[in-house]
Amino acid sequence: MQAATPDTDDSSSTPAFVAPPVHLKEPLPNLATWAHFFLKADIPVLESTALALEAMRQNEDEVDAGMLAELIDTDPFMTMKVLAYVSAKRRNQESTQTETVISSLVMMGVAPFFRNFGVQPTVQQQLADQPAALEALQALLKRANRAAHFATGFAVHRGDTDVAVIRQAAFLNDFAEMLMFCYAPTLEMEVRAMQHANPTLRTVNLQRFVFNIDLNDLRQELMMHWRFSELLVRISDGKHAEHPTVRNVILAVRLARHTENGWDNPALPDDIEEISKLLNAPPRVTRGFVYKIDQPT
Rank of each mutant, 00 (worst) to 15 (best):
172 L>P: 00
174 D>Y: 03
180 M>I: 04
193 A>S: 09
184 A>C: 08
182 C>P: 02
204 V>L: 09
189 M>Y: 02
200 T>V: 14
204 V>R: 07
195 Q>E: 15
181 F>L: 05
200 T>A: 13
188 E>V: 12
188 E>C: 11
182 C>M: 04
166 I>V: 08
202 R>Q: 13
179 L>T: 00
189 M>D: 07
193 A>I: 08
171 F>M: 04
200 T>Y: 08
204 V>F: 12
171 F>D: 00
194 M>T: 10
180 M>W: 01
175 F>K: 03
190 E>T: 15
178 M>Q: 11
196 H>L: 14
192 R>P: 06
196 H>E: 15
190 E>R: 11
194 M>R: 15
178 M>R: 05
169 A>Q: 02
176 A>Q: 01
184 A>T: 00
192 R>Y: 14
197 A>F: 10
194 M>E: 11
191 V>P: 01
168 Q>Y: 06
168 Q>V: 07
189 M>H: 06
203 T>F: 15
180 M>Y: 01
181 F>C: 04
191 V>N: 02
202 R>F: 10
176 A>M: 01
177 E>L: 14
186 T>P: 07
199 P>G: 10
179 L>Y: 00
178 M>W: 00
176 A>C: 07
181 F>K: 02
176 A>N: 01
169 A>R: 00
182 C>D: 00
202 R>A: 15
170 A>P: 03
178 M>N: 08
175 F>W: 07
202 R>D: 15
198 N>M: 12
167 R>T: 03
183 Y>G: 03
177 E>R: 14
179 L>P: 00
166 I>D: 04
170 A>I: 00
175 F>D: 00
194 M>Q: 13
185 P>D: 03
182 C>V: 08
177 E>N: 13
172 L>G: 01
195 Q>M: 13
166 I>W: 01
197 A>E: 15
186 T>A: 11
203 T>H: 15
203 T>S: 13
166 I>F: 09
198 N>Q: 13
191 V>A: 06
195 Q>D: 15
176 A>K: 00
195 Q>K: 07
194 M>L: 14
185 P>S: 05
183 Y>A: 02
189 M>F: 03
200 T>G: 07
194 M>S: 12
193 A>Q: 10
201 L>R: 15
202 R>I: 10
177 E>A: 15
179 L>H: 00
183 Y>M: 05
180 M>P: 04
185 P>Q: 05
181 F>Q: 01
172 L>H: 03
188 E>K: 15
176 A>I: 05
201 L>D: 04
